[in-house]
Design a protein around this nucleic acid. Structure first.
Length: 273
DNA sequence: CTTCGTTCCTGGAAGC
DNA sequence: TGCTTCCAGGAACGAA
């Protein structure tokens, strides 16, 4: 599942390949992944656009053309944006193909096809999920008073709350479990039960696991690949995610697997309270 | 306002 | 061995 660190690694690896390249042709093999405008208009408008910048916001990637047009991509569960040289074998599960100048091909690949593409022209369409993103890990906006204020009126599980992109941008199931493990907080704790000290620990933990994920080029648990088709290596450093039944790296206790906020969840009952 | 269940989808693992 | 069932989960949506 590509989360903030994975998307950041995709952005970094794609940038040198696509910057200042012009889109020559767009081939849409799975039209339902194009959410706005119509697939036909999407392709027509993109042809001739020059990619001037590639930005990340939360788990979204934004292709900017230096005009009033931008393309917003979300990889959801199994999406991948991969660049190949023209004539090289095409990657698996290729759904959308962008032919670029300079002999490069940009592919939107997706096994489960939940990924989305929007073309926004003069803000003609609203993407609530994009417009309402909360503060990013590692920024001064994600601070104790802010999270205290949010948690004050939330009785849902803390895991569910930090998965809410309007509360914190960029966490998914992997880094949510990891952050709670690092902070020593049980995932099922009600949001309003956390004290100031715990909130501070949680913010520090979120910042730490995200930073570590970026440093390690993302976590490849199943399908994630970066812009060059390479895997991440953060999976070797995970404390709890995917380690149900295995020993806790801190205390050796057997890690517990359960379901919290409708998501598979792993934690250490000894270290997390 | 919050919270919760449902939906989308496919590949791989688990189960019989 | 081979078939069927289940599970993985990000975010939009509707209902309570």
């Amino acid at each position: 599942m590509p989360e903030l660190p994975e998307i950041e690694q995709v952005r970094k690896t794609l940038t040198p390949h696509v910057l200042n390249k012009i889109i020559k042709r767009v081939e849409i093999r799975l039209p339902r992944m194009i959410k706005h405008p119509s697939p036909e208009a999407f392709a027509d408008i993109l042809v001739g656009q020059c990619i001037r910048d590639l930005k990340r916001k939360g788990k979204y990637l934004t292709f900017e053309f230096g005009t009033n047009i931008k393309m917003i991509a979300h990889l959801r569960m199994t999406g991948a944006l991969i660049v190949t040289d023209d004539g090289a074998p095409e990657p698996e599960y290729a759904k959308i193909k962008f032919e670029l100048t300079g002999g490069k091909m940009l592919w939107f690949c997706d096994i489960r096809t939940f990924g989305t593409l929007h073309l926004v022209i003069n803000d003609d369409v609203r993407l609530p999920g994009f417009d309402n993103l909360g503060p990013e890990p590692g920024t001064k906006e994600l601070n104790v008073p802010y999270l205290q204020e949010v948690l004050k009126r939330r009785k849902a599980s803390i895991k569910g709350i930090i998965l809410d992109q309007e509360v914190v941008a960029g966490l998914g199931n992997i880094y949510a479990d990891e952050a709670l493990a690092v902070a020593g907080i049980l995932p099922q704790r009600p949001g309003d039960s956390l004290n100031e000290k715990e909130i501070e620990k949680l913010i520090k933990a979120i910042n730490k696991v995200i930073k570590q994920g970026i440093k390690n080029h993302g976590t490849t648990f199943r399908n994630y690949k970066d812009g060059n088709g390479n895997q991440g290596r953060n999976q070797d450093y995970l404390m709890v995610y995917g380690r149900k039944g295995k020993p806790c790296k801190k205390c050796g206790a057997e890690l517990v697997g359960t379901k919290v906020a409708g998501r598979g969840t792993t934690y250490c009952a000894e270290c997390q309270h």
